[in-house]
């Protein structure tokens, strides 16, 4: 039998479970948007139109204790003159679209940083809309932990 104090310790670990009920779920999430839904709505494209690019760097923590305040920094080794806009999407959020930044030559560099909300573990994705009509993308997987506070 665990003492009250032991339970506090377990709580600190972050994933303690008094009741584990693994089960199957066959629900469809109709009211939520997929990444493709969001890409269609904002850019008129789908994931297939995204070109993975190593020129884009997405900096974010590997593990976040809370999805309330996750820092994200996007930079790209692409001349600002060639870029129309930079987008941030969280693939698995109920609404993946987070922000759009219209870039101009006055920026000097393609760069944007902010803090985002995350519903659960998901890729944090940057999409860059180029003036030539192509879409470059890169992402960083951020794990949002489940758990409790003692």
């Amino acid at each position: 039998m665990l003492s009250r104090r032991d339970l506090f310790k377990v709580a600190g670990v972050g994933a303690a479970t008094l009741l584990v009920a693994p089960g199957f779920v066959g629900q469809s999430f109709a009211a939520k948007k997929s990444l493709d839904d969001a890409l269609k709505e904002k850019l008129g494209i789908t994931q297939k139109d995204l070109q993975a690019s190593e020129l884009i760097k997405v900096k974010a923590p590997t593990i976040a204790e809370s999805g309330a305040n996750v820092p994200v920094e996007v930079s790209a080794k692409i001349p600002a003159q060639q870029v129309e806009a930079l987008y941030i999407f969280i693939d698995k959020n109920p609404n993946p679209y987070v922000a759009q930044v219209d870039i101009s030559p006055a920026n000097g560099e393609v760069y944007f940083a902010t803090r985002v909300k995350m519903g659960k573990t998901s890729p944090v994705r940057a999409v860059i809309k180029m003036k030539d009509g192509s879409y470059l993308s890169a992402f960083k997987e951020v794990k949002v932990t489940v758990g409790g506070c003692g």
């Binding site: 922000a99 219209d102 985002v116």
Partner: peptide, 11 residues
Amino acid sequence: VTKIHSSPGIS
């Protein structure tokens, strides 16, 4: 020089 379009997805 720059326009940011924000949303409730920002903290």
